[in-house]
Each structure stands twice: as C-alpha cells, then as structure tokens.
Write a protein that binds this DNA or RNA. Structure first.
Length: 426
RNA sequence: GGAGGUGUGGCUGAGUGGUCUAAAGCACCUGACUUGAAAUCAGGCGUCCGGGUAACUGGACCGUGAGUUCGAAUCUCACCGCCUCCGCCA
C-alpha cells in the first residue's frame, strides 16, 4: 500500500507505475476523490461524536438519542466510502525505483554485470536431470507416480549437498566478521549485524498473507479453505509479518532474519515449461533473507544483500549475471528488484536462481510495522527480502557446472568441509 | 477433540454501566538537591487519524469484530491468542 499523501502529491508518478507494471488499472482521480470525501466525512463524524459525548456527559438523553441515530447514518456513509477507498488503495502497485527500466516483458530487463568464467568442457555438457538420473541422485519418475508432475526425490549425495548448502549459508550469515568483509569488498557502509536463523511456520492465515501483498494471485497458492490457511510460497511470507503492528525502536534496526523453509507453488499456467529437472517444482526448499531497516537505509541494505548473494555464488564458483528487472517484470509490491541468473551449461542458458526485492514501505504500511525514532516520532519502516539459496536450482547449477566427462560431479571447494567428499556419483 | 480459565499502556496490575480525561507500582525522560552518582523531591511519560505557524485542540483505540444502551474496559454473541487439566500424538 502507498502513502495517500504521496499519491496526492505525485499522481503522475502513480499513474505511470500503474501503466508500466502488469497490474489492474486504477483510476487515480477517483481514488483521490474518495480520499477527500473520506476525510470530510471523518471530520463531520468527529464533530458529531463530540456533540454526542457532550450530551452523554450531561445526561441529556433526548439529544443523545437523536445524535445516536445521526451518527449511525453518518457512520454507514463513512464505512461505504472507506470500503471503496481501501479497495482501490490495495490495488495500487508499488512505485518502481527511478533506475528501474520501463518495459512490459523481460526483454526490457537490464543486465548489470556478468561475473565468473563459464566452464569449458571437452565434451558436450548434459542438463542436470540427465546427470542426476544417471547417478541416482534425482528420481522424478517415482515422484511422478507418488505425487504427480513437478515433484521429485532428491537422494544420496545430492540430498547431503542440500544440507551442506544450508550449513555453508548459515555459517556466512551468522558471522559478523564475514559480513563485514563482504560489505568492505562491496564498498558499502552498512551495519554488519548478523542474521538471526529462523525456521518459520510453513502455513499461515490468508488474512496475514494478504497483508504481505502476497495472497494474490490466489491461483498460485495452495489454500485450505476449511482451515482458512495457506501454504507459504516462500519463507518471506511468514518472516515478513513477524513484526506486524509493532513500533520498533530505531536503535534495534536493522533486524535481519534468514529463514529456511519449503516453498509451495501451484505453478498455474506453466504447463509444458521446464517439466524436467529441478527448475520448476511444486515444492522446493529455500533459504531466504528478510530484513527491516530505517527508510533511509533501504537501498544500501539491498546493495548489501545483493553483495551477499554474489559472494555466495562466487564462493561456489558459479558464473552468473546480475539483472535489474524492468517495471513489467517486477512484483506488485516491489520498488526495486534484481535477479541473479546462474549459468547452466547443460541448458546453455542463464537461469534465474536468486531474486532481491526492495519493498520500501509498501508491505510495512499494510503490516503496520514502524520504526520509532529517538525523537518519539514514528514512521513506516522499510523491508527487503531476497533469496540466498533456492535449493533445486542451486543443486542444478552445481551439477551442470561441475560435471565431468565420466558423468560424475565435483563438489565445489566451499562445500567440501560440509559434505565430506570431493566428488559425488563416483 | 473435551473441560475450565484468561486477554487493560514498555512491564506488573486495579477497575463489573456514567467526572475513566484508566488507579497504583516498576521502567523511562526532564528539573531540583549533589563535586559526580545513588537516594529523595517535583513534573512529565501510549498509539493512530484530523485541525492549527505554534501554544494548543477534536476524534478513535482496554485482544479483534458485531450487538444491547442516551452512555460499555465493565453486559451479550462470535472469532483470535495465551494458560491449566483430560484425550490423542512425533
């Protein structure tokens, strides 16, 4: 949700955002008119309530009865306006950052940099599903019989590799010195406060997911109507509301969480796309970063998070490119969104493996998560969320980049201490 | 799943229909006393939405939402959270 004052002051920016994002159109003039009448009715109601309170204090029962009816009528009017107003407010997308490229499809995305050297093979590199199936590390056929399409069994050394990735991730994000080092090398002046590891709930109330602006499209969610509960599509969904309806003292910021959870996605409308392998599954596990900062620190925080993501990819020796997503490719609540796409030699393509979303105050305004300044003033704080490891896709990238002529796969050096071997599938 | 409790400001906690403008204590802030601190004393101290340059001022908020009443923290109903016991269970 946007700030109504911002909308009043910058209607053209809001109109441009509606036009440039893939979002349902909203009549901004109508919204402002509703805001005006809501405000006027509110003032009228305040005055009426004052008179009513006076009558009550004086035990003026006649006047009290009359004003009660008047107030009821006015309240009904106010409620109707409020309802339309909120409905439009919730439809408005976040404003894209000034550096976000304008465009409707990913063709307009801007590649900021390509990092790392693509591996050269003396043979034709295979896609990870062929490698994985041949080595007995991936069993999609059995998963298809048991669970259906877009599910998989990850087995043996590949399952161990997932745990190794988890351990490596936590060792980085909970270590203040490592974080300070990452910040220094990225040239960022930023708090080096470590991340708090969290295993969050995997299901949540639909109303809270809606406050995260993540319930829609509902078609993409697994929703249990009987219990009014939704499976999370990311740890973000239950990490983000941890501080809803709270005012956090400025001195306690930033607050940083790293969550490990499954991500459940219906993948509606993607039939026929990426049907093999670990790229597009109804369930995968993910390590997610979620941070809460002062508004003035939002961009730097995102730069820091991207630096962490890049550090991690470099540590694994995976070539990747950093992409600034265009307006049409951004999510509704995003202010600035970057993707990291990792090179998959078996598919001869960069594939999206990481996302970094800076939300500004869009989610926190709905969640009512605020920062309280030393002066006593409070305002909506800013939120960032980002992938550290999307397990399926990271395992796929490692398999494809580290494959050898004999079909076995080397283990990235950084993972060896956690995995306990140099080669898998041997 | 069954039974019984309970939800009040940062915290503890009083308040069962009308100066509640929510007692009191703790914590916190300011000032006085003090070389400084502690102790003591005096005062202040919630959130949100409006009006006003400002001093100030109007409204809403006692888990949430409905209801009864001229009037609700207080009565009624539903929901949510937490606690205790029983049952079941990794």
């Amino acid at each position: 949700m946007l700030d109504i004052q911002f909308i009043r002051d910058n209607p053209d920016i809001v109109k441009a955002a509606i036009q440039n994002k893939k979002t349902e159109p909203v009549d901004v003039a109508e919204l402002i008119a509703l805001a005006d009448s809501r405000k006027a009715l509110g003032q009228e109601l305040d005055a009426l309530n004052r008179a009513r309170n006076d009558a009550q204090k004086n035990r003026d029962i006649e006047t009290g009865k009359r004003l009660k009816d008047e107030a009821a009528a006015l309240e009904a009017k106010y409620a109707a306006v409020e309802k339309s107003y909120v409905a439009l407010m919730l439809k408005l997308p976040n404003i894209p950052s000034p550096d976000t490229p304008v465009g409707m499809s990913d063709d307009a995305n801007k590649v900021l940099r390509e990092v790392g050297e693509k591996p050269h093979f003396g043979f034709s590199p295979k896609p990870h599903w062929e490698l994985g199936e041949a080595l007995g590390l991936i069993d999609q056929e059995t998963a298809g019989e048991v669970s259906g399409a877009r599910f998989t069994y990850i087995k043996g050394d590949l399952a161990l590799m997932q745990f190794a990735l988890l351990s490596l991730s936590m060792s980085i994000l909970t270590n203040e010195e490592t974080l300070a080092d990452i910040a220094r090398r990225a040239g960022l002046t930023v708090s080096t406060k470590p991340f708090v590891p969290v295993i969050p709930p995997y299901m949540m109330k639909s109303a809270v997911m809606n406050r995260m602006a993540r319930l829609q499209p509902l078609d993409e969610r697994y929703f249990f109507e009987k219990d009014d509960i939704v499976l999370v599509g990311s740890a973000e969904h239950t990490l983000g509301p941890m501080h809803m309806d709270e005012s956090i003292p400025e001195a306690e910021l930033p607050i940083r969480y790293v969550g490990y959870s499954p991500a459940f996605r219906r993948e509606a409308g993607t039939y026929g796309k990426d049907t093999r392998g670990l790229i597009r599954l109804h369930h995968f596990d993910k390590i997610e970063m979620e941070t809460f900062v002062r508004p003035q620190d939002g961009y730097t925080e995102q730069d820091f998070i991207v630096a962490i993501q890049e550090h991690f990819l470099q540590l694994l020796g995976l070539p990747y490119q950093v992409v600034l997503k265009c307006t049409g490719d951004q999510g509704t609540p995003d202010h600035r969104a970057l993707d990291m796409e990792t090179w998959m030699p078996g598919q001869n393509a960069y594939r999206e493996t990481h996302t970094s979303d800076y939300m500004g105050g869009y989610q926190s305004r709905r969640l009512n998560t605020r920062v309280k300044h030393a002066s006593g003033e409070s305002e909506v704080l800013h939120m960032n969320d980002a992938t550290l490891v999307a397990m399926g896709r990271m395992l796929a990238a490692i398999l494809e980049n580290y494959q050898q002529a004999d079909g076995t796969v080397r283990v990235p050096r950084a993972l060896r201490p956690f995995l306990g071997k140099d080669v898998i599938g041997a």
